[in-house]
Write a protein that binds this DNA or RNA. Sequence first.
DNA 1: TTAATTATTGTACTTTTTACAATATATTCG
DNA 2: CGAATATATTGTAAAAAGTACAATAATTAA
Lengths: 230, 230
Amino acid sequence: MDEKFESYFKAAVSVDNVVFGFDHTGLKVLLIYRGADPYRNCWALPGDLISLDTNLIDSAEKVLQDLTGLEEIYMEQIHTFGKVDRHPYGRVFTVAYFALIKIEDYHLHPSSWAEEAAWFPIGEIPELPFDHNDILAYAKEQLKSKIRRQPIGFELLPKHFTLTELQNLYESILETEFDVRNFRKKILSMDFITDTGLKQTSVTHRPAKLYKYNAKRYSNLINTGFAFDL
Amino acid sequence: MDEKFESYFKAAVSVDNVVFGFDHTGLKVLLIYRGADPYRNCWALPGDLISLDTNLIDSAEKVLQDLTGLEEIYMEQIHTFGKVDRHPYGRVFTVAYFALIKIEDYHLHPSSWAEEAAWFPIGEIPELPFDHNDILAYAKEQLKSKIRRQPIGFELLPKHFTLTELQNLYESILETEFDVRNFRKKILSMDFITDTGLKQTSVTHRPAKLYKYNAKRYSNLINTGFAFDL
DNA sequence: TTAATTATTGTACTTTTTACAATATATTCG
DNA sequence: CGAATATATTGTAAAAAGTACAATAATTAA
């Protein structure tokens, strides 16, 4: 390699994950409490610098797996942030991902980081270090946009869910309201949300039917030119 | 900074631009003929390594401006590629952008690179170095998806265009066909493509009316909750 | 048995999408 | 100058999708 290239090879690249979760109180984001400099003792997005011998996507997945203990998490790269002064230690580009996890599953597998992580309601995010507030805002917009056109909402719900839960999820993320009858009609007409035959238990009122997402049917539909849009 | 961080600061980051153009023969991509190593004497996406003192977006814009001489080019970041072995000189992440330019304007401002750049029809792209073929494929998908929901098709057409040209553009990019009457009805009903009062000249048949995109009307519509979708 | 709570379902109306072909306006050529 | 050629422009009826709206059903708790 020519010497003139050397000056370029002095940057670092990190990944930062915006991890979304959902429960009956609404949409939440997983933040970690930093135990090391820079910005020690701050809440921040979970992320890490990338080792030179690790692929980008592997690095993003590893951060999440260390943090949650979960495998097969829905992740998507959303944007790369590269302002010159965004990191105090030097030139650090960060590649942001968003991830959707089922909060229940997360509680089942606490990891070494568990004590230092917490869910924050989307409306109560504190001031974060670096440009993490920007990243989070960007991720939220992406989620709003993606969830309308791709069947990813289910990633935030238990495997079996009620239509009311599904509607609450959409209303919460899209910050809007749907008519109960029309919402159900539309969802069920799409034919890839199927009745499990089961019902809620331990509720103090009429139990709702439990449904599940049928990925196979969805991909069949896609192949016929169908486009999900809510 | 702690010494343990030093090993991370040895990566380089580049930008690569997928520049789309359109003429009556269809969608085209601008490639450059590399005059320097690595991959000297190959057609490739126009891109460059990022200096440590340059913001990401500025770097992407500079590459395009050097190449085309144009200012105010429509650009959008699409994805970051970071496989370990994608560059022969070391660990290089690349942030890909797509850009839309009016081919006519480009011809008006040849730059220092002009002799080494050429438009390739989207269906006749040669084998490219690095992972540029992957980047291009990704960009093409993004374009297909974006052009349906955002009024960016006009960036590829002259300021004044006919509805037939507009329809050809959409049909070409989306690889589908529209009914002439329905297409025009839909486009014109959106109310932000306005008649200039002008007509084509120098055509050997009935001249078509010339229209233009009205950005102000579009943003007004957006504020009323309107969503473009073709 | 009644009260309380949430789940579930249908219909008429409006809007949007779709399918489909004849007429209009310009140039070129004989 | 008229005919041939080439593309531009326009409407309507039928189907599908979206919207607005409220009564009944199923369960637990008192």
